[in-house]
Simulated scan of single mutants.
Amino acid sequence: MIPDVDFRSDTVTRPSEGMRKAMADAEVGDAVYDEDPTTNRLESMTAEILGKEAGLFFPSATQANLAGIMAHCGRGDEYIVGQTAHAYRDEGGGAAVLGSIQPQPLPNEPEGIIDLDAITSAIKPDDFHNPVTRLLTLENTFNGRPLPEGYVAEATELARSHGLSTHLDGARMMNAAVATDSRPSSVASDFDSASLCLSKGLGAPVGAVFAGPRDLVDRAKRIRKLLGGGMRQTGVLAAAGIYALENNVNRLREDHDRADRLSEMFKDFPELGAAEARTNMVFLSPDGVDMPAFAAFLAERGIITGAGHGKPRWVTHLDIDDEAIESVRRACKEYFGR
């Protein structure tokens, strides 16, 4: 049974009628032979939006990140990544397991940055005892927070000065772009490559695009095949991605506004310890609240919640409307007013 209101993640979005029609009408061919015109259009369109030379469609952002890391690094190489970044903590250790690439995790500050001095110290000297440090990867947004623009420029320049490539896990980079009134190409410009997830706030049912220089994308294409990501008539899925990019980017502001409203509403219930909304996410630090009981109470009223990075997390998305926010208000009044 589909819950009435699902705040667990923006991954739970369902295709709109317009998106479904675009999928049904999509012109298709064999994408492994580069003969699917809709997929080709999505790839070139995304590359242009992100200011990159080429793009490559993937089943998921996890696979796009993995292929990207493997394209940048060889066996026995190393990539620097945040300790709580998705590409390190939440993607099954794929780079190590499947790519024989050593991660060098470093602590993330609350806003998602990695200390520049820590990055410098982590870069290995040219010594045969050490793995070769090849890549710095950052995530934007991070726990719903856009990375500070000045920091991104400094971190990527630091990486380049040491001969490292850079990759952006941009699963929610469109949220970052909208929140900072920036072009997506500006968010991605300092990075050699970037991944963009289409199935979160953008509302497509599946898919991601990896973008970067043509030769790097070509290497990633070979790796995608190795990982089992070579698909056939993908135009049906790519059409959803095109629809998402054409219709669902600017509307992310609605998600951000509703997250702001949710955060403000939670202030009426201080025991929940609601943080300020960052793009489309609100994190709670509850004090003295039986959260399993609270979650069960909400679930009985058709409101589903989840956790992210160890804290209760509420995520707004295109299937969350104004009435959904009001239903949470009513439920909280009922629960905490008992």
Score class of each variant (00 low, 15 high):
residue 116 L to P: 08
residue 224 R to G: 08
residue 71 A to G: 06
residue 16 S to I: 15
residue 51 G to T: 12
residue 145 R to N: 15
residue 141 T to Y: 07
residue 287 D to Y: 05
residue 143 N to C: 15
residue 75 R to W: 10
residue 320 I to S: 04
residue 22 A to I: 00
residue 223 I to Q: 01
residue 312 P to C: 06
residue 52 K to E: 00
residue 278 R to T: 08
residue 180 T to N: 09
residue 215 D to W: 13
residue 315 V to W: 05
residue 26 A to D: 02
residue 140 N to G: 06
residue 261 R to F: 00
residue 300 E to M: 15
residue 190 D to G: 08
residue 221 K to S: 11
residue 258 R to K: 11
residue 307 A to L: 06
residue 87 A to T: 15
residue 242 I to E: 03
residue 178 V to T: 05
residue 190 D to L: 10
residue 123 I to R: 00
residue 64 A to W: 00
residue 27 E to R: 15
residue 101 I to G: 04
residue 314 W to H: 12
residue 120 T to R: 15
residue 123 I to V: 05
residue 5 V to Y: 13
residue 135 L to D: 05
residue 217 V to M: 05
residue 311 K to D: 12
residue 14 R to L: 12
residue 5 V to H: 11
residue 99 G to S: 13
residue 268 D to A: 14
residue 148 P to W: 02
residue 125 P to F: 03
residue 87 A to N: 09
residue 282 V to L: 13
residue 172 R to M: 12
residue 238 A to W: 08
residue 283 F to E: 05
residue 152 V to H: 09
residue 23 M to E: 02
residue 176 A to K: 05
residue 232 R to T: 09
residue 69 I to Q: 03
residue 309 H to C: 13
residue 212 G to H: 09
residue 145 R to T: 05
residue 321 D to L: 10
residue 154 E to Y: 11
residue 334 E to G: 02
residue 306 G to K: 00
residue 216 L to V: 09
residue 234 T to A: 11
residue 13 T to R: 14
residue 142 F to S: 08
residue 32 V to H: 02
residue 28 V to A: 02
residue 293 A to P: 02
residue 161 S to Y: 10
residue 180 T to G: 06
residue 284 L to V: 03
residue 305 T to W: 00
residue 206 V to P: 08
residue 21 K to L: 15
residue 283 F to H: 11
residue 131 P to S: 10
residue 223 I to P: 05
residue 208 A to R: 04
residue 241 G to K: 06
residue 291 M to R: 13
residue 24 A to F: 07
residue 59 P to V: 11
residue 195 S to Q: 12
residue 11 T to V: 15
residue 64 A to P: 02
residue 314 W to D: 02
residue 292 P to Y: 10
residue 110 P to T: 06
residue 310 G to T: 07
residue 1 M to D: 07
residue 276 E to Y: 03
residue 20 R to W: 07
residue 44 S to A: 15
residue 297 F to C: 07
residue 181 D to S: 08
residue 301 R to L: 05
residue 213 P to F: 10
residue 269 F to I: 05
residue 197 C to V: 02
residue 125 P to E: 12
residue 135 L to Q: 02
residue 211 A to Q: 03
residue 87 A to D: 11
residue 110 P to F: 07
residue 87 A to S: 14
residue 104 Q to A: 11
residue 73 C to T: 03
residue 237 L to F: 04
residue 335 Y to T: 00
residue 196 L to M: 08
residue 90 D to A: 13
residue 111 E to F: 14
residue 336 F to P: 05
residue 52 K to F: 01
